[in-house]
Amino acid sequence: MITSATIFGLCGAALIGLGLYGFVTQVHLLRRLLAFNVIGSGIFLLFGATAARTPTGATDPVPQALIITGIVVALAATALGVGLVLAYVRISGKACLPEDADTIDGGPHPSSHEDPPE
């Protein structure tokens, strides 16, 4: 029988896979930051699922504490990332790194060309 912990664990693994795909394939920096958050959520879900698998059967509270800390850390990193992306878009008008802009011919999303925020 599949326990709920296993389902949560598999969902976490699926999120990590999806996020990793996005992180590697997308060149738009905001999308990559979002992909980073999807991977992070997957890891937290997986981590939470492991808390149910103690030898005694009682739920282990430590992963919850670690996940909360991890979410705060991910939030701080994402905030800095978004701030940097905004600053970069204001100056360069592009939302992807120079080396990616060269290979994808100016960015993957036609919408990112139209009106960068002032």
Binding site: F23, R32, F36, L80, G81, A87, Y88, S92, L97
Partner: peptide
């Protein structure tokens, strides 16, 4: 310093570092 070059370098550094953290 907020120049385009250093912002791009910072963002590239951040993408690598975030992947490493995960």
């Amino acid at each position: 310093e907020g120049k385009a070059g250093s912002l791009a370098a910072g963002l590239r550094y951040m993408m690598f570092a975030l992947a490493g953290s995960l």
